[in-house]
């Protein structure tokens, strides 16, 4: 049996308690769903002297909608996000992506907060969160602050959290009327796979004009990649096939993929064009 090295374990009852525990030693790690952390501890890729379980903090498992938007607790499990009525009504693309990460038994534990904190370039939820203008609300020894999701991942496996800081919730503003969003990825299997390339888009169309458009890419850079220039090309225009082609070409040009066991770089660039065209067509068509 694969075994982990010994560590201490505490259940944090509140955000303040968790912040204190995480600030108390450099080798403290946050445990939410554990589907990345426990694998990393078993393989030796990460070490921990103290595990701080944050799942019993009500704020961290809440999925709460109000007039401003959605507060998604950092440890809320994907299965609960995918089934949530408010998420399905106001953020259907988010419900879809929550049902896409890993498989069923992974979704019973894995959280979208963890998908973000793990900072994999291939994280399925992150391009969509960027497209939806989400922000990460974090707490730590210096108090609370907010980080735009596009600034949260800084390198493969590295995020913008300072020592002792942890993710409390993800805030997603309520989309303006006329907004649609979509995440598309390419995987060689039907399920349970890591994106060869992925595209998250959100766009608002009012009276035949695009008033907002945001696009971000997965698996084609060292972090999830926000392609700001797509918004510049689309906003103020009327949707058309030619415009979508132009925007998809911008997304393809922005990709900076590597070649690895999943795909060569050229193929990933090609996929960025195809998936961007399809995703933009889905939200603008």
């Amino acid at each position: 049996m694969l075994q982990m090295k010994p560590f201490e374990y505490i259940v944090a009852p509140s955000v303040d308690d968790a912040a204190r525990a995480l600030g108390s030693r450099a080798d403290a790690r946050v445990l939410a769903g554990g589907t990345d952390l426990i694998v990393q501890l078993k393989s030796g890729r990460r070490e921990a002297g103290l595990i701080v379980d944050v799942k019993r903090i009500p704020e961290l498992t809440a999925i709460a909608m109000n007039a401003d938007g959605l507060r998604l607790g950092a440890a809320a499990a994907c299965i609960h996000i995918a089934a949530n009525r408010d998420v399905r009504t106001h953020y259907p693309a988010l419900a879809e992506v929550a049902a896409l990460i890993g498989g069923t038994a992974i979704q019973g534990r894995a959280s979208i907060g963890g998908n973000l904190c793990n900072a994999a370039p291939s994280a399925d939820a992150v391009p969509l969160l960027i497209a939806l203008s989400a922000s990460a609300r974090v707490a730590g020894p210096a108090g609370r602050r907010e980080i735009a999701v596009e600034d949260f991942c800084i390198a493969p496996g590295k995020n913008a959290l300072a020592p002792g800081e942890f993710l409390v919730e993800i805030f997603i503003p309520k989309p303006a009327s006329g907004t649609r969003a979509k995440y598309l990825r390419f995987i060689p299997r039907n399920e349970m796979d890591i994106a060869v390339a992925g595209v998250g888009v959100a766009a608002t169309v009012v009276d035949g004009k695009i008033t907002m458009a945001r696009l971000a890419l997965a698996s084609v850079a060292s972090t999830p990649l926000f392609v700001r220039e797509v918004g510049g090309a689309l906003e103020g225009q009327a949707p058309s096939a030619a415009l979508i082609e132009q925007a998809a070409a911008l997304a393809q040009a922005a990709a900076r993929p590597i070649s690895d066991m999943r795909a060569p770089a050229d193929y990933r660039r090609h996929l960025c064009g195809v998936l961007s065209r399809r995703a933009l067509s889905a939200v603008l068509g």
Binding site: G34, A77, I106, G108
Partner: peptide
């Protein structure tokens, strides 16, 4: 009630 892989759950959880 949630389906999980017990290899990725700590016993103390």
């Amino acid at each position: 009630g949630n389906l999980v892989t017990s290899c990725l759950v700590l016993g103390v959880e």
